[in-house]
């Protein structure tokens, strides 16, 4: 009984840690840390407008993509 509790606790805590590790690896792989200054700098300008811009950018991309593929 005792030992199964220990095994479970080690298992659960390691599993939780592993999730964090995987999240970190995912971020590294996707270039989250490529620009060391960006995170600190862009915080200054992080507002509603920036959020809108990001959405607009996606929309624009989709719109232009359609246009690009239009049969001519």
């Amino acid at each position: 009984m005792d030992s199964s509790v220990i095994a479970m606790m080690i298992g659960v805590s390691t599993f939780l840690g592993a999730i964090a590790l995987l999240a970190f690896l995912f971020a590294v792989k996707n270039g989250h840390f490529d620009d060391s200054k960006k995170m600190m700098n862009s915080v200054h300008f992080d507002d509603e407008e920036a959020l809108n811009d990001a959405v607009e950018k996606e929309k624009k991309r989709e719109k232009l993509k359609e246009k690009n593929y239009r049969p001519e």
Partner: peptide, 9 residues
């Protein structure tokens, strides 16, 4: 222009 990304560093 779809995206303009500038590296801060």
């Amino acid at each position: 222009v779809i995206e303009a990304y500038i590296n801060h560093t």
